[in-house]
Write a protein that binds this DNA or RNA. Structure first.
Lengths: 232, 232
DNA sequence: TGACTAACTCACTAGAGAGTTAATATAAGC
DNA sequence: GCTTATATTAACTCTCTAGTGAGTTAGTCA
C-alpha cells in the first residue's frame, strides 16, 4: 500500500487489508481499461496509480488478461443476475402476457439505473463493457459467457409479446437494442459536440426515458413490415 | 517487396510500384487493426504480412498513429462524401418534404451497400470504424472530424420530416441509430451464437432490410411520447 | 552513360513490458 | 515468543517495439 494510506488505518486484519488492496487494484484497472482498452494499459500504469509494486498484480491475478477478466466479471455477474431477477418478476406480474415495451424496460431501465445510481465505478465498468462488446477478437466470447442467459430470457419475453413475429426479426431487433445501449455506455462525448451541448453523453436519464419506447416501436414496425413482405 | 513477388511484374514504373506497396500496407494494416485495435498490432506484424521490412512503414507513414489515421481516412472520406451526395439528392427529389424512413434509408442503406458490394477491404474498414466509434480516448474525435457534416445533414432532414419534434429527441434517436449501425459493422459473431445460427453477423442485407424501418418507427414513437409528456 | 533520386533494407538503440525468483517484513497461530 | 504463512518489494531477465540513420539497389532523366 502507499505509505500515505498506511498510518491511517493500522488496525486492519490481514484479510481485510488484502480485500481492500484487491478492490483498489480492480477499481483502478477498471478505470484505466475503460479509457484505453486492454492493450493500451500496462500493469505498471495500474500499479503506480494504486501505489503498489507492479509485480503485486501478478501475485494476485497471475497475468494481465486474468486481471482484465476479473475486472469484467466482478460487475458483469451482478448486472446479469439483477436483470434476470427483474425479468422473472415482470414475467410473473404480467402472467405470461408481457408487452414489448415492458420487457425492454425490465431489461434496459434496470441496467441503466445501475449506472445512474451506482457511482463512478459502475460507469467505468459500463464503458469497458461497451468496448468488449465491439471487440470481435475475444470480446464477443466474454459477452456470450456472461450475458447469454439474461438475453435469452429477454428474447423469450419478446417472443411472447410478439407471437406472430419471426424469430429473425426479434434477434435483429435485439441486436439493434444492444448496439444502441453499448454506444450509450461508452460515453464518448460525441453527441455533446454534435448537438452543441444540447444532449450529454453522461445523461443516462435522458436515454432511459426514450430508449425502451423507441426500441419497442421499432420491434412492432419491423414485425409488421416483414409479415407484409411474407404475404406478397 | 518480397522476393517472391518481385520477378512477376518487373515492368512497373517507380511511381506505380510505390502506389501499389502503399496500398498493400494500408490494406494489411486495415485488416489487422480491425481485428486487434491500434495497440494490439505492431508495425512488424503488418510488415511481415506484406513482405517488406518494418521500417518501410516509418518511411511512408512517419509513425504508427499516422499509419492508423491514414487507414481510417482513406475510406472515411469516400463514404462520407457518398452519403452526403445521396442525402442531397434525396432532399431535392422530395422537394423539402422528406420522410423519416426515406432520410434514414439514404443514410443507412447507402452505407450498408458499400459494405455489401465493396469487398473485404470495405468490411474490414467497417469493423475498424466501429471500434473507433466506441473508443472515448481519440476515437470520438476521429468520428467528429470525418462525419460531422454528413450527420448534421441527416439531422437536418430528420428535423424537416418531424417538424414538431424536439431537437433532443432527434439527436438521441440518431445516437441509437449509430450505436446499432456500429455494432453491425463490428460483425462480432455474437448474434450467430445467440440465435443458434438463425441470424449471421455478416448478413448486412438482413440488416439493411430492417434497420431503417425499425429506427424510423422509433423516432416517431419517441416524438409522440415526449410531446405528450410536455403537455402534462 | 552517368549523375541523381526514390524505394527499400540493415544494423542498431533505447526503452518498455510482462513476468520470475529470491528476499524481507509483518501479522497469525500455536 | 517462536514459527509459519502471507503480503509486498527488489533485482533481474527476456522479449518485443517503435524509431533512426546509414547504406544498398535500381529506375529515371539529362
Amino acid at each position: 500500500m502507499s505509505s500515505a494510506a498506511k498510518p491511517k488505518r493500522k488496525r486492519l486484519t490481514k484479510a481485510e487489508q488484502r480485500a481492500e488492496t484487491i478492490e483498489q487494484i480492480l477499481d483502478t484497472a477498471e478505470y484505466l481499461f475503460s479509457k484505453h482498452g486492454l492493450y493500451g494499459v500496462t500493469l505498471k500504469d495500474v500499479a503506480k496509480r494504486v501505489g503498489v509494486h507492479h509485480t503485486l498484480l501478478n501475485y494476485y491475478f497471475e497475468d494481465k488478461k486474468k486481471l482484465f477478466d476479473a475486472v469484467f466479471e466482478r460487475r458483469a455477474v451482478v448486472t446479469s443476475e439483477r436483470r434476470m431477477r427483474v425479468l422473472d418478476e415482470y414475467d410473473k406480474k404480467t402472467k405470461g402476457k408481457p408487452t414489448v415495451e415492458g420487457a425492454l424496460r425490465a431489461f434496459l431501465d434496470t441496467d441503466l439505473d445501475l449506472y445512474i445510481e451506482g457511482g463512478e465505478g459502475w460507469r467505468n465498468y459500463a464503458a469497458l463493457a461497451s468496448q468488449v462488446a465491439n471487440t470481435p477478437e475475444w470480446g464477443a466470447e466474454m459477452m456470450d459467457q456472461h450475458f447469454d442467459p439474461v438475453v435469452l430470457r429477454l428474447i423469450d419475453l419478446l417472443k411472447k409479446a410478439l407471437p406472430d413475429c419471426s424469430e429473425e426479426d426479434i434477434f435483429w431487433g435485439y441486436h439493434f437494442v444492444t448496439g444502441a445501449l453499448m454506444l450509450t455506455l461508452a460515453r464518448t462525448g460525441r453527441i455533446d459536440k454534435l448537438s452543441n451541448g444540447l444532449c450529454e453523453s453522461d445523461d443516462f436519464l435522458a436515454v432511459k426515458e426514450r430508449m425502451a419506447s423507441f426500441m419497442a416501436a421499432g420491434f412492432v414496425a419491423v414485425c409488421k413490415q416483414q409479415k407484409a413482405k411474407r404475404k406478397s
